[in-house]
Amino acid sequence: MDKGYEISKLISYGEKVFGEKSNFQKWLNSESKALGNLTPKSLLETKEGIQQVNDELGRIEHGIFS
Rank of each mutant, 00 (worst) to 15 (best):
F24S: 06
P40H: 07
S42Y: 07
Q51N: 10
Q25K: 14
S42D: 15
K33E: 15
R59P: 03
F24I: 05
F24N: 06
A34R: 08
M1S: 07
E61L: 01
E31K: 13
D2F: 03
W27V: 12
S66P: 10
T46R: 00
N29P: 06
F24P: 06
P40E: 12
K21L: 05
E31S: 15
S66E: 14
P40I: 06
S42Q: 13
N37T: 15
K47P: 01
L28R: 08
Y13G: 03
R59S: 04
W27T: 10
I7G: 03
H62M: 04
E20W: 05
S22A: 13
K3M: 13
L38C: 14
K47D: 13
L38I: 12
K41C: 03
G19I: 08
I7R: 04
Y13N: 04
K9N: 12
D2H: 09
E31C: 09
K33R: 15
T39M: 15
Y5N: 05
Y13M: 10
E31R: 10
S30C: 11
Q52V: 04
I64C: 00
V53K: 02
S32R: 07
G49I: 05
K33S: 15
I11S: 03
I7Y: 02
A34E: 15
E48N: 04
N37R: 12
L38V: 12
K21H: 06
T39G: 09
N29A: 08
H62Q: 08
N54T: 13
S32H: 08
E61I: 00
E48A: 05
K47Y: 03
E45G: 12
E61H: 02
S12L: 12
N23K: 13
L44T: 08
E56R: 11
N54R: 04
K26R: 15
G63P: 07
S66C: 07
G19F: 12
E56Q: 11
S22T: 11
Y5Q: 07
K41R: 12
Y5F: 10
E61D: 11
A34L: 13
V17F: 05
G4W: 00
R59D: 04
K9A: 06
W27S: 05
K41L: 13
T46G: 04
Q51M: 02
T39F: 03
W27I: 11
Y5K: 09
L43C: 08
L10Y: 07
N23A: 14
G14T: 07
L38E: 15
F65G: 01
E15P: 03
I64A: 03
V17P: 04
G49N: 04
G49V: 04
K3S: 05
S42F: 07
E48L: 02
G14C: 05
V53A: 02
E6P: 00
E48R: 00
N37G: 14
Q25F: 14
